[in-house]
Design a protein around this nucleic acid. Structure first.
Lengths: 232, 232, 232, 232
DNA sequence: CATGAATGAGACTTCATTCAT
DNA sequence: AATGAATGAAGTCTCATTCAT
């Protein structure tokens, strides 16, 4: 913190961009891009206003870097996880969505959804980037798994696009919630991970060829999700 | 526009607040609160900067008025519609969610969701207001119908809160989408009303005691929703 | 007060200019010219903003009218009082300064001094007007009396200008005080009339040929001034 | 002025607050607080609008800083001067009032009196500050000297508060005058220092036990004050 | 005459960005 | 590389003045 501590300065030099991105993400998600001052970002990253501009030429470029960075890194992780996975399509989807998305939900990167939703109309480049890098890639990844499941007789022959959206949209919503209303001191909160699990199970059950042989409907959450923790 | 147009001055007097709210809603949803200039709102409402401040004491108060106005009016309509309805719980929910929410989705008021998500952390009052006036009231209304459906043997004995969220969250998401990515010129669009219909049918099917006698699973979209129009 | 009361409107029509001047004086003295809004003046006078402009073409003209009105009327009264007076020069000065200035001190017109002091540099016309109408006329009036007193052997042959200033400046100061610090809630106050009396007696004593036969110096306050009420 | 003048930027860093205070004092005294634009102050201090706000958070805080600064520094000087003084009470008072007040009168700080008179009702804090820091301290200082003079048989047993006011009020008035009417191009001017000297001698003469043995009254100005330079 | 809705110039203040150190 | 003083464009809000009713 000491501004004239040479060790501090040197030691963190390579970490600066990441620290700035972290600080910017937090603040942009919390207050919005326009309402966040460049100096706030710098201070939260532990540097001075001028230093921010050594790394990013403008506040707007910082925003784009934030979005690009957090989306890309997460997408890459997801793809890697998917590539390494073996098992049924159900298991794969469960793995990807519950594990990977669960981690995403708990990580600061979840805020990027809010950022994109919020700023996409002010910065059209973001729309293209997000669509190309996230929407399409994620859709291809998940759509491929669903398609495979159908081909292998594991899932019913539903519309693949529908299925993907039914799986994914509520998960996005839950991320948004965490960083908007969910971050406010309202006496009501939503257990996101429980909801994710319950939701994915529900939809996968519905997709599967045999809506559970034991007669239980697809709505039965297969697991110990405490009901009262779910969103009201 | 003409400053010496007599008709303009007086005839619009009572309409001013509504015109300003409309203009403000559009712009706040499109660009965000902080990135919208007060004068833009005034100009879009067809008045001068000063006139805006005749009706709302500050930009922030205008924001709160926008949220309060559009939420309250929509909630009131929903409650009225629910009160006048007769039929099974399924029909009632379908009525409320497909008709009422469908209208909401197509109306500018749908943008309020984006506004709340976006601004709630900067204006804590909004959190309380939204939670009290919207979340709780809507939840009570829908929860009551679901509970009644269970009591009358129409629905399975699921967790009421879960059911309500499964019904509602994706609908909120679709409204958000319309005013963020959906408003951008990406080559890809989402037919919101079709999604609403399909989603509600899906969940209601899942809730119903007999998941359709003909053997089709609850996931079967009940109708001719053109697959390719759904979000990818 | 009722804006549609015809009696009220008619009855006060001729009184309007005076009411507006009264209101303007109060507010200009209290808050200063620049910090007083035209509408405040109108409201305090019981009329609407537009009406003010029916009587005075601008805020600045209103200021000049206020100063001209209150100064002129007071000067006229003073001159009249002086003209009607008979007695020694001492009695005449005592009469003018203690009676007339005492009344001035207690009247709202005393505020004009603050107004002139405050605004004279922003409105050079006021300087000329004040100097011509007030400084010169008052100086002539009082200087004449002093000169007469000297001619008649009542006063010592002092410098007339000095004498007039020694008499008058502290009285102006006391008027200023009443409308600035004296109007604030400080636990300390100054009995203006007592000070006026003591001050005039002191100076007249000093001016008179025989500084009191009993050997007491001219500084002896002539009597019933309660010491502790004087300014600290 | 030159934005790329390196000397300008750093060399003046510590001088900025003082330069801003000087500029603000001049302008506030000349035009009044409300009629002075923040940018005018900045420009007169040789900086830009934004720089003003680097040093003072608002125009109002700048006003308070101006008053506090000039009053405090003068009061401190006065107290120091008094402490170092030796001689009779008369000499001490003459020293303080003629020397110190004479300097004050000729310095920009004299304008603070106008500022306080003018703005005290709009900013109640100023009333308390001025009363506490100036009125009370000055009164204690001067009152102490007078009281000592009485105790040592130098002065007659007059009311101490009266005496102090008789000494001081006209001096304040003369400072006010210099920055209001006296600054206008009226063909008439007042030699303030001469007036101060004459006034102080007059009152001290009056206070002294022996009103001059030679029979001349205390009104005789002991010195060569040119009569025609006094205020008319 | 009186009203008060409307206007828009202008004031205060903020903040992204620059650049000498 | 890092700092932070300085800038000035731009945004929020005020208010003197106008004018249709």
């Amino acid at each position: 913190m000491n501004p004239i501590d040479p060790v501090h300065r040197r030691r963190r030099k390579e970490a600066r961009p990441q620290e700035l991105l972290d600080a910017a993400l937090e603040l942009f998600v919390e207050k919005g891009f326009a309402a966040t001052r460049a100096e706030e970002v710098a201070v939260r990253a532990g540097v001075s206003k001028g230093t921010l501009y050594l790394y990013y030429p403008s506040k707007e470029e910082l925003l784009k870097a934030v979005i690009a960075h957090y989306l890309s890194s997460r997408i890459a992780e997801g793809a890697a996880q998917a590539a390494n996975f073996s098992g049924s399509s159900s298991d794969l989807l469960r793995g990807i969505l519950i594990d990977w998305w669960g981690q995403l939900y708990d990580s600061p990167a979840a805020g990027v959804f809010k950022l994109v939703i919020t700023e996409v109309r002010n910065f059209p480049e973001i729309a293209g980037f997000y669509h190309r890098e996230v929407v399409e890639r994620a859709h291809e990844l998940l759509g491929g798994v669903v398609r495979q499941g159908i081909a292998q007789g594991e899932f019913r022959a539903v519309d693949v696009d529908h299925a993907v959206h039914s799986l994914v949209l509520p998960l996005v919503m839950i991320c948004l919630h965490r960083h908007s209303l969910g971050a406010c001191a309202v006496d009501w909160h939503l257990d996101g991970r429980a909801f994710i699990a319950q939701h994915v199970h529900l939809v996968l059950d519905g997709l599967s060829v045999r809506p559970t042989a034991d007669g239980a409907g697809p709505q039965t959450p297969p697991a110990p999700v405490p009901p009262s923790t779910l969103p009201r």
